[in-house]
Amino acid sequence: MNMLIYLIPVALALGGLGLGAFLWSLKNGQYEDLDGAAWRVLDDDETPVAPVEARSLNSPQSGK
């Protein structure tokens, strides 16, 4: 039963990692334009656009 001492923290940490990743992506504006993202991935010569900048442009007043 001693392995529980690290298995439980490991399980929680992995779950927490997923939760953290989701919250980060939400804050980062990854879900602002789902339809557009689906198309952009097919675009060959994309000049790189910093995602943070894109977010601040798409939702400039949300005050996050």
């Binding site: 997923g18 989701f22 919250l23 939400l26 804050k27 939702s59 007043q61 949300s62």
Partner: peptide, 22 residues
């Protein structure tokens, strides 16, 4: 803009409770 913020709050709520429930 207010409505947009509520959407984000709700989505965060779903994520947190989903993590807890699992």
């Amino acid at each position: 803009e207010a409505a947009d913020r509520l959407r984000t709050q709700l989505l965060r709520g779903v994520a947190v409770t989903g993590f807890a429930a699992a």
